[in-house]
Design a binder for these strands. Structure first.
Length: 268
DNA sequence: ATCAGCACCTGTTGGC
DNA sequence: TGCCAACAGGTGCTGA
């Protein structure tokens, strides 16, 4: 599913498409798409969309009354703005209908995605950690987050409660550019490794946003366009192919049940 | 605290 | 062509 760059791309596109629209109602085709802790979606009727942003990997739709509609696309979710009358995709799970006869349609083949209407501070409610681009995340703050952690750094990067937005692809890519093996204990990185990792994270995420994210199979943004960053992966999905820096074959291991790619020569 | 294992779901791909 | 296993951008739960 989308990671930070894909969610950012989706949110930016969606912002121009639905800002200011007034909600008429919500239709739910797959009940479990609505998070059990969500406020009732029917209460959205009559309210306008104020803005669209991103909180970690959530698309955050701000409502004029201060509430937030948080959407997590998980593995295969996508969002589309179309005329309500257009026939529903086979995998459409939920639709927000606007009073101009357009709809925001949530399509999700695997049904993992979730939608949740929140009152109050959404970041707190969603329990997401600091964003990689948050200015408050300097080298000192990053070091404090990592201190004492014994879990592998790659696994640590995927934990959304500490740092939010990084997923499997960009964790692998950032560790490659930082020259750090995925299995290294998070709390055992040296100061220069931490600095390098934070820099690599930001640079790879920024580049991916520039390319509108990465499309493996089904990812498309709010305009239906694919991303282009998958062409630039250094290690992700490149098992056995030569490392782009040293030509030795890229390896694959499992960490926390997730495929993890790295170069054993470039990463120590 | 942390991890393995499994659950949630459907679709695609590759081997035989 | 068919069947089956493995795998996929994510997270949450349970039990050890």
């Amino acid at each position: 599913m989308p990671e930070l760059p894909e969610v950012e791309t989706i949110a930016r596109g969606l912002r121009t498409l639905i800002r200011g629209k007034r909600i008429g109602g919500v239709r739910v085709a797959w009940a479990r798409t609505v998070d059990a802790r969500s406020d009732p979606l029917a209460s959205l009727a009559g309210h306008r969309i104020e803005d669209v942003g991103r909180i970690g990997k959530f698309v955050a739709i701000t409502i004029e009354d201060g509430r937030t509609l948080a959407i997590h696309l998980r593995m295969t979710g996508s969002l589309h703005v179309e005329p309500r009358s257009k026939p529903a995709d086979r995998h459409e799970r939920l639709a927000v209908d606007f009073d101009d006869r357009s709809s925001l349609k949530f399509v999700d083949p695997r049904k993992f995605g979730r939608v949740r209407l929140i009152e109050g501070d959404p970041a707190a409610t969603l329990a997401v950690g600091v964003d990689p681009f948050d200015r408050r995340l300097d080298n000192k703050a990053f070091a404090e987050l990592l201190a004492g952690r014994t879990t592998p750094i790659k696994t640590w990067l995927l934990d959304q409660r500490r740092l939010s937005g990084v997923g499997n692809i960009y964790a692998c890519e950032a560790l490659f550019y930082a020259g750090i093996r995925p299995k290294r204990r998070a709390g055992r990185l040296t100061a220069s490794e931490r600095i390098s990792l934070l820099k690599s994270l930001r640079s790879v995420l920024r580049k991916a946003i520039k390319h509108r994210g990465s499309s493996l199979n089904d990812y498309v943004d709010a305009e239906g366009k694919q991303g282009g960053f998958q062409k630039q992966f250094a290690v992700y999905g490149r098992l056995g192919l030569p490392c782009k820096q040293c030509r030795s074959p890229v390896r694959r291991i499992l960490l926390a049940q997730r495929s993890t790619f790295y170069c054993s020569a470039c990463q120590r």
